[in-house]
């Protein structure tokens, strides 16, 4: 079986990534010539790019790479091909936080809570609270698979609480909440991007710390002590890294599905390796690329309408997941 050299794969994806980025800046309600993007004399289009499209494209890159990396780590940790960044219910924590703020705010007539920054803080607090619960659970459990079940249960709990809140909320609040769950990259501004970058950089530190252990996990044994790795500590670091990545992205852009599940598979298929030193950067790049493309597809040509980003990622993602399920990587070579 032929395998592309690593450097050439990285180069090709990098070129595609740059192309998608530039094209992303051009596409929108108004089409801008990609060759004149940065040399435009027109003040209006300069503002359009710097104030709206550039933060949107940067957000797409950050979201795509963070979710793909998080998904890659979850798939390796749980040895499960359909695990993703949301499998542990981190996003459900964020959803619960946001629903408490948007819907709870209306019930207790505290509408000021529905401001954009309040939502972000609520989502972040919800996601991180979920992370702390999971880290506590990790301390007492013996088998890491238990964490998966606990995470799913907490997720279901959070969903049920938010549906109770929805039931008692006025329609416009429910709409605001549902719109948030659709995910959006267009509300992101520069301060938010700086926050996202800081979270992701912090998470990357933990990711690098866990790479040696992640590579050992590909052996498929849960006993790592005999190799000189503290299993609990490794699980702790992986959980911390993925939760930081997932909750920060979810807080600013809403829960965005499927990217985190499909991208690790694509990078494994392309690289044909399980070495996480290679899978990590390539997954991040492919994730950013797919997110940029998905974002472009949300703009219906010829009209100002923008589809919710989640519907586009699902549109690409679901056929891919079905394909994974029915054609399982040629017996998991």
């Amino acid at each position: 079986m032929y395998r592309w050299p690593f450097i050439s794969v990285v180069l090709i994806i990098a070129i595609l990534l740059v192309l998608a980025f530039v094209l992303n800046l051009s596409i929108g309600e108004v089409w801008l010539n990609p060759f004149q993007l940065f040399f435009s004399e027109n003040l209006q289009s300069a503002i359009l790019i710097s104030e709206f499209r550039l933060p949107r494209a940067i957000a797409a890159v950050l979201v795509g790479s963070a979710l793909s990396l998080s998904g890659l780590m979850m798939q390796t940790l749980f040895r499960n091909p359909i695990a993703g960044p949301y499998v542990l219910g981190i996003s459900s924590g964020s959803v619960l936080g946001v629903s408490l703020v948007i819907l709870g705010g209306s019930i207790f007539s505290a509408e000021f809570l529905s401001s954009n920054s309040a939502i972000i803080i609520a989502a972040l607090v919800g996601g991180l609270a979920m992370m702390f619960i999971l880290l506590m659970v990790l301390k007492i459990i013996k088998d890491i698979m238990t964490l998966l079940i606990v995470g799913m249960m907490f997720g279901a709990f959070a969903t049920s609480v938010s549906s109770i809140l929805q039931y008692f909320s006025p329609g416009f609040q429910v709409k605001a909440f549902v719109l948030w769950t659709f995910g959006s990259l267009s509300k992101v501004d520069y301060p938010q991007i700086y926050w996202m970058i800081s979270f992701i950089v912090l998470a990357l530190f933990f990711v690098v710390l866990s790479l040696k252990g992640l590579n050992l996990l590909t052996l498929g044994t849960s006993q790592l002590e005999q190799f000189g790795i503290k299993t609990k500590r490794l699980h702790f670091i992986i959980l911390l890294a993925t939760a930081l990545l997932t909750s920060s992205v979810t807080a600013f852009c809403g829960p965005i599905g499927f990217i985190g599940v499909i991208v690790p598979h694509i990078s494994k298929k392309i690289l044909k390796t399980s070495n996480h030193w290679r899978l990590m950067p390539v997954s991040m790049m492919i994730g950013a690329f797919i997110m940029l493309v998905s974002e472009m597809l949300t703009h219906l040509p010829g009209s100002g309408m923008v589809l919710p980003i989640n519907s586009v990622t699902a549109f690409i993602g679901i056929p891919f997941i079905l394909w994974i399920l029915f054609k399982p990587l040629k017996n998991e070579i």
């Binding site: 690289l271 399980s274 998991e332």
Partner: peptide
């Protein structure tokens, strides 16, 4: 349950894990 696309060299190399630095 070795993950797909793990080559033999990488598997044998896992035995050296304890002797490598923190980056592996």
């Amino acid at each position: 349950q070795v993950q797909a696309f793990t080559n033999v060299f990488d598997v044998i190399a896992k035995g050296r894990t304890v002797h490598t630095n923190w980056l592996g």
